[in-house]
Design a protein around this nucleic acid. Structure first.
Lengths: 191, 191
DNA sequence: CAGTAAAAACATACTAGTAGGTACAATCTG
DNA sequence: CAGATTGTACCTACTAGTATGTTTTTACTG
């Protein structure tokens, strides 16, 4: 067990979430982690390398949380709705989506990969559930599950953006409710 | 006409879009604008003051562009769909939404206000059109137009996030197509 | 099992360059 | 020529490290 490495990664995760990649300085990481400069640069050669480790951890944690919700037993569409209504610290935003705003993250393949992986995984998992929902007759067969999955994830990510712009969770909640109305009151609802 | 003021504002608009508030330094603004430090600090007392002017300009421009699209003649729902399919430089993201990621912007009321104003205006305008669409019978009356408007805007903003994370416009386009399917293939479609 | 060698871990000092300004003199412009 | 504008110098603090020295572990030998 290396205590310093662990502390550096969790601290960097927190700072990346709060302030993004450009807004997070090595010094801020060291101070908050209570780890000296020499230590930090011993374990991680650059800020980017440490950020990458932190991103990978955050992506894995997010995937694990979403997997737990979406793998639950029950009706597939209901599980998607549960995921949509999941409790969130809305104004804090998404630990992964936040990083997509940083040009340095998007430009560096190593820094961008964890984002692509997390969002790719969630989209695929949602698409699979939505296809199940189509097979159950709860969604029209002619809809494209893959596109719909992207829509679901986009509403969440966009909801965060609107909420932070308004400094209020209300737009997030409205966006979610609007999507739920769209998903539950569709052409198959009258069967 | 003050040439320096104009150049400073348009340059800051561009830099805020590209790099956000934290990532934009006074020096970078001066260099790209070709304006000296003395000039800049003569016209704008702080970086925040200049950023605010740039944000207000960007918000006004965005509103004007959206207004032009949404005020066009024709069926209200079709106008929303046209807005959704509008051409965009997807990987560049939204000039306003990008700033919601910056904690310093969200924390400062003066810097946050233009975002709240722009998104508030667009949401209201969309909600009005969606209500019209309900009155035309193209959307179910029981849906809440305000929530739906938030959903539409969230899909766009979230689409940008997903696209940048994937370094590809594809997730954006999928999210839009999914939303269009939801909006056009609903319970009233069988009337 | 003591002793030691090597490596891993941590700390301190230093660096060139940038962030976000202030102070003030010089220069336009009406 | 007064007031608006601009250029230059300067400031303190921070960024992203490098360089170097000091402990602390671990691993092996006799």
């Amino acid at each position: 067990m290396n205590k310093s490495i662990e502390k550096l990664i969790t601290t960097t995760q927190a700072l990346l979430w709060e302030r993004g990649y450009v807004g997070t300085s090595p010094r801020a990481i060291q101070d908050r982690a209570g780890v000296g400069q020499g230590s930090m640069y011993h374990h991680f050669r650059t800020k980017a390398e440490l950020a990458q480790a932190a991103e990978e951890r955050s992506a894995a944690e997010l995937i694990e949380e979403v997997r737990a919700l979406l793998d639950a037993p029950g009706d597939p569409l209901d599980r998607v709705l549960t995921y949509l209504r999941r409790e969130r610290d809305v104004l804090k935003g998404c630990r992964i989506g936040r990083l997509a705003a940083d040009p340095e993250v998007v430009a560096d393949p190593a820094l961008r990969k964890p984002l692509e992986h997390a969002f790719g995984w969630i989209t695929e998992r949602l698409a699979a559930l939505l296809r199940e929902a189509q097979d159950c007759g709860r969604l029209p067969q002619e809809w494209d599950a893959q596109s719909l999955a992207a829509t679901v994830l986009a509403v969440i990510q966009g909801g965060y953006v609107l909420a932070r712009a308004a400094n209020s969770p209300a737009p997030f909640e409205q966006a979610i409710e609007g999507l739920i109305a769209l998903l539950t009151n569709n052409a198959t609802a009258e069967d």
